[in-house]
């Protein structure tokens, strides 16, 4: 038996969660961009770029308008109590997406790859991307991530060892992959980026691991001391490349590097890189259930 569940209220809260994700950049990311701005010389291109970015963040929040027009492929990570039907949650999310699109908080982004037809409401095959897991709490948690196409296009997956990168199946090899991906991306992923990395897994779980890292706060610490050290090393090395904000040169190329791992097969060693633009639009909704 499913417990009572106010679907309408849930849908309204979801639509507002999507609005906030699209219009209100999380504080930790905004602060990190302001820190980057303070490091650049006035009159420099990097300074102009970061000034534009930080002004835009404030305007978007004040006016409740999408801070970036590419609202990406809407992805939701849902934790739900056993007695709630995942199908109902799915339906609510779909309805919320339609509402948020109608109100101009999302760009209609679902395009049929064969006919080229845009569905117009952000629903389509494989869209939205939904990830369900059951938990013991009596609330539904929905984490929403809006990741634009530009940053998705420069995301990458490597299979180690790699002759081209002189990279073996070890931490040094992982490091070489991340540096290569950021070099290749230059400004096209909307630097300064946040680099989600997944070590191991298969082609799907590896990339999922990388993408889930993007929910971590910029100032958190990896529980795994080796990965924590690698994160810190990579931030330093990547920012020495002087690719800079939007790839126009400067001191900040990445705001953070977040690394996770998943068990791999003996034959495979994937390094998956989810490059996130500076506009890392993440938002979490907690929906408490009514008790009978």
């Amino acid at each position: 038996m499913n417990i009572p569940f106010n679907e309408k209220a849930f849908t309204i809260e979801l639509a507002d969660c999507i609005r906030q994700a699209s219009c209100e950049l999380p504080d930790d990311i905004e602060q990190s961009l302001r820190d980057a701005l303070s490091k650049e010389e006035k009159q420099s291109t990097a300074h102009t770029v970061l000034e534009t970015i930080t002004q835009n963040i404030v305007l978007a929040r004040e006016k409740s308008r999408p801070l970036c027009q590419d609202t990406g492929l809407p992805a939701f990570y849902i934790s739900y109590p056993r007695k709630v039907s995942p199908d109902m949650i799915k339906r609510s999310i779909e309805n919320a997406l339609v509402i948020a699109t109608e109100k101009g908080y999302l760009r209609p982004n679902a395009v049929d790859p064969i006919t080229g037809k845009n569905s117009g409401n952000n629903l389509g095959e494989g869209i939205p991307a939904l990830d369900f897991s059951e938990w013991d709490k009596s609330e539904i948690s929905v984490k929403c991530l809006l990741k634009g196409g530009g940053s998705e296009n420069v995301s990458a997956q490597y299979s180690l060892p790699s002759v081209e990168l002189s990279a073996g199946r070890d931490i040094k090899g992982v490091e070489a992959c991340v540096i290569d991906a950021v070099m290749k991306a230059q400004g096209n992923g909307c630097a300064p980026g946040i680099i989600g990395v997944g070590i191991g897994g298969d082609r799907i779980s590896g990339y999922e691991t990388a993408k889930k890292q993007l929910f971590r706060k910029l100032d958190d610490h990896n529980e795994d001391p080796k990965l924590n050290e690698l994160e810190q090393t990579l931030i330093k090395k990547l920012n020495q490349l002087e690719i800079g904000p939007m790839g126009l040169g400067g001191k900040t190329t990445v705001l953070g590097v977040k690394i996770g791992k998943a068990h791999r097969l003996p034959a495979s060693y994937f390094v998956s890189i989810a490059y996130m633009c500076w506009a890392c639009r993440r938002k979490e909704l907690h929906f408490l259930l009514e008790h009978e």
């Binding site: 534009t52 970015i53 835009n56 305007l59 801070l67 970036c68 027009q69 760009r107 209609p108 395009v111």
Partner: peptide, 27 residues
């Protein structure tokens, strides 16, 4: 600047016309 969508949208004084809207969709 990528992502600075409100700043650029606010420079738009008017939408004069649109080509291929039905064929291509809004974006």
């Amino acid at each position: 600047v990528g992502g600075a969508a409100v700043i650029y949208a606010d420079t738009v004084e008017s939408v004069e016309h649109v080509y291929q809207l039905n064929e291509f969709g809004v974006p």
